[in-house]
Write a protein that binds this DNA or RNA. Structure first.
Lengths: 198, 198
DNA sequence: CGTTATATATACTGATCGTTATAGTTTCCT
DNA sequence: AGGAAACTATAACGATCAGTATATATAACG
């Protein structure tokens, strides 16, 4: 594994990830990525022979990893599901507010754009969600959620967050995510104590 | 109010709505809209002097109305919240499956793209969500949800659906929405019977 | 030192984009 | 029938896009 001799590659990926999060894939030009990253124009197709699509895939993969780390970090610092969910929510709210409600989910816009235009990009997005669901499921079980509930609950919680982030961006407010946090906690606790049977 | 002499306007709006739903705003060219609509090229800027943005706003408004009608229709045909939620979910699942998982929420992609590029378009998207939340809230109250719970519950249910639709598109499966339906019903019923206090 | 791989500069391509200008056609109304 | 309004056709515009070709520079390494 060769070691890079410049940080151009990282700069491009990081900038691309931020711009794709805010503006989506189609809405972000390579020129803007180059400018804001400060990386040299001539390096783009040397570092990413696959062009924009390859850069986007790497950006998505990086964003995927960031969220995974956040899920784990929040779980490690928490002593209950409630605390964990609050911690995670706080992170997203911070991201929203510090960006004037421009940065929601780092991959949702690209996901919606990439189906079915770019199969490779779509695959990266799909993997992201699958991994997040897996991570959430594991943490839920760790916090005492019944194994047979955890999987579906993870999907539902992720759905609620993703949707709330859209509403937050649309409304320019963190309120939907706050509501989502509150009700998610109620739901999880109810599931945890088995006071909820269909 | 003048009556139109052709159906070009409606054709353009309808086609634009479908394409924006599938491909988003940036991913949809005016040429494609013209072609698929069958409307004459020369009419676009006559019917929509504001160009693509104006057409998009009208498309979003039409999609907004469609969903509102669906919410009301499903409510009218149902005798319980559970039935209502199932009916609504069935509609979205039908839309997903009949489009090979290309058609999720009709406005979410555009919403994420329009912030903050086009304030007018963003406004239309925001209004859409506000109206849907209002509609859902009213129906929830009609079905016996406590007034003080209905507003937040509506936001949460809409979030869950929006997020689930993203996951469905990413995974090419209706499973996330099915899970969302199931858990949403459980949550609403619990709220309805007051067996859930934080 | 010199060679090789890595990295960057520059210029250009062909395509597509949204938009505009101008002219021509159709339809309605009196 | 005639004139006005509604509608459409066509062509071109400037801009931007992703991508490519070629040349040059920088660094690592023997």
């Amino acid at each position: 594994m060769p070691k890079p001799k410049t940080d151009s590659r990282d700069r491009l990926i990081e900038t691309a990830a931020r711009l794709f999060q805010r503006q989506g894939y189609q809405g972000t030009g390579l020129s803007q990525i180059v400018e804001e990253s400060g990386a040299p124009r001539g390096s783009v197709y040397f570092l990413f022979p696959g062009g924009k699509e390859e850069l986007a895939i790497e950006a998505i993969e990086q964003s995927t990893l960031m969220v995974r780390k956040q899920i784990e970090l929040a779980a490690g610092n928490s002593h209950s599901v409630e605390e964990w969910i609050r911690s995670l929510a706080a992170h997203f709210i911070e991201d929203l507010e510090s960006s004037n409600y421009l940065q929601g989910c780092p991959i949702s816009t690209v996901t919606l754009e990439s189906v079915p235009d770019s199969p490779a990009l779509q695959k990266a997005c799909r993997l992201a969600y699958d991994l997040w669901i897996e991570d959430i499921t594991i943490v839920l079980i760790r916090f005492g959620i019944h194994k047979e509930d955890a999987g579906e609950l993870a999907v539902f919680l992720l759905s609620a967050v993703e949707g709330a982030l859209i509403l937050c961006r649309a409304q320019g407010s963190a309120k939907p995510l706050e509501i989502g946090t509150k009700l998610s906690i109620e739901l999880v606790k109810a599931k945890q104590h088995g006071i909820m049977e269909p």
